[in-house]
Design a protein around this nucleic acid. Structure first.
Length: 637
DNA sequence: GGAACTATGAGACTATAC
DNA sequence: GTATAGTCTCATAGTTCC
């Protein structure tokens, strides 16, 4: 279901999207002291010189990822060479320690103090980061602002501002970690107003900030709520300070402004999320165990189904939401996903209970659990049922009845040839070592027996059938065979998802308005259609043109009566666009999405970076958009 | 130049034995 | 409870082919 297929239809998509370029601009603009209008990627001289030497760019990226400035890293590499990373790190740490504020950086300090950060904090951060990289300084300042304050225990009740609510919800995610005993007594909303003002000023906020926060949040607000408010205001102020030439339009009516603010926040929250994940990893706290059997709240063949649960209040719709990703993600990932999605318990389900192939996935949703029903007819549940012709050639020592997870790649012809040769002239019972080799490869590549001693990977249409898509769903229209495998490998298993979504049928007899993020080849759309739930209006967001064409083609072939709008990039979906769409449709009933798993999947040997990964970090866009939809829905009610 | 092909483990979980 | 082996994984990068 992810949309990141690198080869998708000539979609060697550059993930340095507009937003990321904007971040780059942000950094450069602040570094050079020159305001650069958004939308243009401009390289500063330091960056240009660094990028010129591509050989050490990986090393540079590595250390920049740790938070050191590019200039500093480049200098350290120049001194030590790029071979000895330990030496480089040591030098970088020395640089960080030795850099101290001087007259030369007084302007810089003033700059950040002007944004509302305390002078003491700015000096400390400049010492830590060096004065060369202002975006790093800003990030750290934002982090410190949150770390040194108790985080909010709950969202603003009456902020009346979507973005504020949205940010508040993310701040909530760290409330249990960053609270300190020193502030405990002030967390009580009953503390008197004067004490709270005093405490806020002691924390480094100005009297004006504290007073405004008190005025806006009310005298009964907790310190957490007040600091939350001030923090949000500071971030907005920071964005304003860095983009002074932009029109100062009201926040809610300025999409660029909102976007930037989201970006500022995005940087901050990602950093937070990394820290949180590290803590979870180190402490192994709240370990999330995958269930065995992996049947979630129940599958059609299971008698003991769970039909009731209590949802956290913040998770209750509208809209209903349904999020999916790989179950076997790196440690800590599902804790983070759950935390960002209202602390909801994921439902881990293996699609082998629905079809002949395994597909272990986690789903977080706020759908009811009672009265689920499966798609009929039931798909074949075993390999032999799915592919009867293989039965004739299937050796007795291959005991598989289910296929493993259908991946995006298939076995090579060379491998199947090696297997054929290994089995030749060995009769029906080859030596155990040969059996073991063949079975290992068959399991790894989902090979099936198509002749004597002959195994073969599945054809794309066979994968379509296993995943519950109509035959030829991904065929033709300009898609290559390789891309068919890739798109299918990234998609939902339709029967599994349909089972979960089936509860919507009685609730929306007249049809449903769907926001489908990371649509892929339209697994959710196909599932709803097969359930007989009319699709009134569908906004499908999918990066791959090939996949968008597949969904569009399916839409037309199935004579849908509703409206399909496709949008290429989730990061283009800002508050204004959403509001416009929702005003047109009357809101979304369901927000579905399976964000990219590239950096989570075990198959990825190169960049299994977790939720901070280049593609998988788009999970946070799912959260962002869901939160915006909730806000707009609430406001329109 | 694009599509097809090929080689490439690590990390996390599970089952089993002790 | 601990150690070990076995198993599985929505992939990526480089090369070859057409």
């Amino acid at each position: 279901m992810n949309s990141n297929s690198s080869g998708g239809g000539g979609d060697n998509f550059d993930w340095d999207t507009e937003d990321e370029l904007e971040i780059d601009n942000y950094a450069i603009a602040s570094h050079s002291g020159v305001t650069i209008p958004t939308g243009e990627a401009v390289l500063g001289s330091a960056e240009a010189s660094l990028s010129a030497d591509s050989s050490n760019s990986k090393v540079i990226d590595h250390f920049v990822g740790m938070g050191f400035s590019k200039e500093m890293v480049a200098k350290a590499i120049e001194e030590n060479g790029e071979e000895n990373s330990n030496l480089i790190l040591e030098t970088l740490l020395q640089y960080s320690a030795s850099s101290s504020p001087s007259s030369s950086n007084s302007k810089l300090i003033d700059h950040f103090v002007g944004m509302g950060f305390s002078e003491q904090m700015v000096i400390k951060v400049v010492q830590e980061n060096g004065e060369g990289n202002t975006d790093s300084i800003l990030e750290t300042l934002l982090t410190y602002s949150a770390l040194e304050k108790p985080a909010p225990m709950q969202q603003h009740a009456d902020s009346g501002n979507c973005s504020s609510d949205y940010e508040g919800s993310f701040l909530d995610d760290f409330s249990d970690i960053y609270s300190s005993s020193e502030t405990e007594e002030f967390m009580n909303p009953d503390s008197d107003e004067e004490s709270k003002l005093l405490f806020l000023t002691k924390m480094g906020y100005s009297e004006a900030e504290a007073s405004i926060a008190m005025e806006r949040c009310g005298p009964d607000s907790s310190i957490a709520e007040l600091t939350d408010f001030i923090c949000a205001a500071q971030m907005a102020k920071a964005a304003d300070a860095l983009f002074p030439l932009e029109d100062k339009k009201p926040f809610c009516n300025d999409s660029n402004h909102k976007k930037r603010r989201n970006l500022d926040y995005d940087l901050w929250k990602r950093k937070k999320q990394m820290k949180l994940q590290k803590r979870l990893l180190d402490g192994a706290e709240d370990a999330l165990h995958l269930p065995n059997p992996m049947i979630g709240f129940g599958v059609p063949t299971d008698i003991d189904q769970i039909t009731h649960r209590t949802l956290p209040e913040t998770a209750i719709g509208p809209p209903y939401f349904y999020y999916e990703n790989v179950a076997l993600a790196p440690k800590g990932v599902w804790q983070t996903i759950s935390r960002f999605l209202y602390d909801m318990e994921p439902e881990f389900v293996d699609s082998k209970y629905f079809c002949a192939a395994a597909r272990k996935r986690g789903y977080v949703h706020n759908l009811p659990l009672e009265n689920r029903f499966p798609l009929l007819p039931f798909p074949p549940r075993t390999i032999h049922d799915a592919f009867p012709l293989t039965r004739k050639w299937w050796p007795s020592w291959d005991t598989r009845t289910k296929l493993n997870c259908l991946q995006t790649c298939t076995a090579s012809a060379k491998l199947t040839d090696r297997i054929r040769k290994a089995l030749e002239n060995l009769g029906d019972e080859p030596p155990l070592t040969v059996q073991k080799f063949v079975l290992e490869e068959c399991r790894k590549w989902n090979l099936v027996w198509v002749g004597r001693n002959k195994v073969a990977p599945l054809e794309p249409d066979e994968v379509e059938m296993l995943l519950g898509f109509p035959r030829n769903h991904t065929r033709g229209g300009g898609i290559s065979r390789t891309d068919r495998y890739k798109s299918l490998g990234n998609s939902f298993q339709v029967d599994t998802v349909a089972y979960h979504l089936s509860v919507l049928k009685d609730m929306f007899p007249g049809g449903i308005n769907l926001l489908s993020l990371f649509s892929g080849i339209g697994g959710a759309e196909v599932a709803l259609h097969r359930l007989g739930i009319p699709l009134k209006n569908v906004v499908s967001v999918e990066i791959s043109e090939v996949n968008r064409n597949i969904v569009r083609s399916w839409w037309e072939q199935t004579n849908q009566k509703g409206t399909l709008i496709d949008i290429p990039d989730v990061q283009q979906l800002n508050g204004d666009r959403l509001e416009q769409l929702m005003n047109t449709f009357g809101g979304f009933d369901l927000v579905v999405g399976g964000s990219p798993c590239n950096n989570l999947a075990g198959s990825n040997r190169h960049h299994r970076d977790g939720l901070e990964g280049k593609e998988s970090s788009l999970f946070f866009d799912y959260c962002r958009i869901l939160e915006l939809v909730k806000c707009i829905s609430a406001r329109n009610q």
